[in-house]
Design a protein around this nucleic acid. Structure first.
Lengths: 346, 346
DNA sequence: CTGAAAGCGCTTACAG
DNA sequence: CTGAAAGCGCTTACAG
């Protein structure tokens, strides 16, 4: 009982008493001076660790205000990012958490080496980090891990280590649903206009599509699988590519709405009628899908909910609570609009 | 000479000596206790001010890291906001400034009274504030002013006090250009589907439109001027309204692309062909205008540049530099696409 | 209201 | 390397 009585934050003098050394010695250890015997240092450090002592300097940099979570985007301008961020902001307002935004532009977040960047986040009192559709390096992640800065990724662009906490949607099921919808309409020549080849979410969508084709006994044509970026330009160029194939597909499954919008744009330019001559399914279910002409059939992801889930997972970790799972996967849903119909009868 | 010799930061004891009171008394003033005579308090405050003393608490909250600027949106999800924010983030990355995001949802930023909200920003070391298409109250602004927190507004939704620093576009000229384009095509029955009636930018666009009509001797029809929010739904409802008028307009100038997209959506539903039966001009020049079908003729604003300019203006003020002007106005440009043509010949 | 005194948490300078 | 002593910047409790 007596041992757990005094729960006030420990002072330097407390540490000295517990360790059995003088206050000045503890002070030296805390401030990283070198004139301390290794064993003494070790003993003091152990007690420091165990009591959770923090020095005035540490207390100063430990954010006095509300929690701050940093959200890192690869590039910012997209309907997808806007939706995810909206969810994060909504949840942040409720939780009294502040959101700091940064954009990597394809590089690493922040300046300097991974260690320095991570230290910067720690110094500035970030409670954690949400990384959205970005690539990141293993050294970067381990720098965060070493400092116990919680990180949650949403649809990373490179394969994440298995122990990393991530939030996503049922991409495999979504890809399968998209392809099955096209198969149900009678299509047999279905192209896949994908995202970055390495990206987990792209792989899952691709394999959902492959699975649907295979289970219906429809042969897979490697020529009709094209990877690229989640961008409108990739849709434009992708359609151009596909129209050059000796056998043209009658339907395209695009791995994002932005890609699909590019396909629509190029189809209009080339006079290819959607859906009469070409059916098209997108992925994401952003406002882009609804506003497109013809309105896009698309696999809708709960992007705002994904943002909220990511923030929850970061805060849970920051508070030292257990996570139910290292991977949160929210349901996708196929929304049929005007861009899909039966294939033309030749 | 001797007077300016010791430039070390003043201690509480220094303040006490200079003011001629005891250290405890200064301590009380610094910590906002009430048991101090008003005159004593005033004397101490004067010296505090003049020496630039900062208490441990202040020193703790005076951000040790990079500058942070808070960006406040009314509501977040829109192509307009995405573009403005992209500009701000770009500039922030270059300047080494961090961006904290908050959304008011139509209310005031932060929690509590204006004074408490402003104090929160100060405590958390914000270098300044950018307020984007939000409404704000005079008490709120004066709370910022009193604490010398620089504020820059972009297209506020209520009339801003004249001394507030603001960034915008040449809305009047843009409105005039839009109306003149329609007049040049031969339209005489031109409706204005506006934004919030009070908003400065809406007023300027409206009066640019009015000016163009008047200078061509085209009578202004009050029935054809409808205000509302900068939202797609307003475009949908606005077109429904306008189609009920005994005399229908042959052209609509929508005060934002989002409104114009709503008009397009409703026109398609009602079978009104754009531009054959109805010409349409939008405002903003976001990706929405380009992706619409038909592609929208729109008055383009340099939204990213506006974001960059706003951040520059905040940082200038934060550094105590002089601003060239309290109002930065960037050029708009009419971009003609597919949604405008000559009126139908009856 | 004011301030002398005591005290807190920490650091520094230095004798051993 | 260690720690007793002095000291710094500040706050608290309380006598007047």
């Amino acid at each position: 009982m007596a041992a757990t009585e005094a729960r006030a934050k420990p002072t330097l003098a407390d540490i000295a008493r517990i360790t059995g050394v003088s206050a000045p010695t503890v002070s030296k250890v805390v401030n990283g001076r070198h004139d301390v015997a290794p064993e003494t240092r070790a003993k003091v450090l152990a007690v420091l660790e165990q009591t959770g002592y923090s020095s005035p300097v540490q207390r100063r940099s430990a954010s006095p205000g509300p929690d701050m979570v940093e959200v890192v985007f690869d590039a910012f301008t997209s309907a997808y990012n806007t939706d995810v961020l909206t969810g994060i902001l909504e949840s942040a307002a409720v939780q009294g958490v502040e959101i700091v935004l940064s954009v990597t532009g394809g590089g690493q977040p922040g300046a300097g080496s991974p260690e320095r960047r991570a230290q910067r986040l720690l110094d500035e009192g970030r409670a954690g980090l949400i990384v959205v559709t970005s690539a990141f390096s293993e050294p970067q992640l381990s720098a965060f891990r070493r400092r116990k800065i919680p990180v949650v990724v949403i649809d990373p662009l490179n394969p994440p280590p298995p122990d990393l906490v991530s939030v996503g949607a049922t991409n495999w099921a979504g890809g399968k649903a998209a392809a099955e919808h096209l198969l149900d309409l009678g299509h047999r020549r279905i192209a896949y206009l994908g995202g970055p080849e390495d990206a987990e979410c792209n792989q899952a969508r691709l394999h959902g599509y492959l699975s649907a084709l295979m289970s219906r006994g429809v042969p897979v044509e490697q020529d009709w699988i094209v990877h690229g970026q989640f961008r409108t330009e990739h849709g434009v160029e992708g359609l151009r590519e596909l129209l050059k194939r000796k056998e043209r597909p009658t339907a395209i499954f695009a791995a994002s709405d932005s890609i699909a919008v590019g396909v629509l744009r190029e189809a209009r330019r080339q006079g290819v009628r959607v859906p009469d001559e070409l059916s098209l399914v997108g992925f994401d279910g952003t406002a882009q899908a609804e506003d497109a002409v013809p309105a896009l059939t698309s696999v809708s992801q709960p992007l705002q909910e994904m943002g909220r889930a990511a923030l929850r997972a970061v805060l849970r970790q920051a508070r030292g609570e257990e996570l139910d799972s290292h991977r949160v996967e929210l349901a996708t849903q196929l929304v049929v609009r005007e861009s899909t119909s039966a294939p033309p009868t030749p």
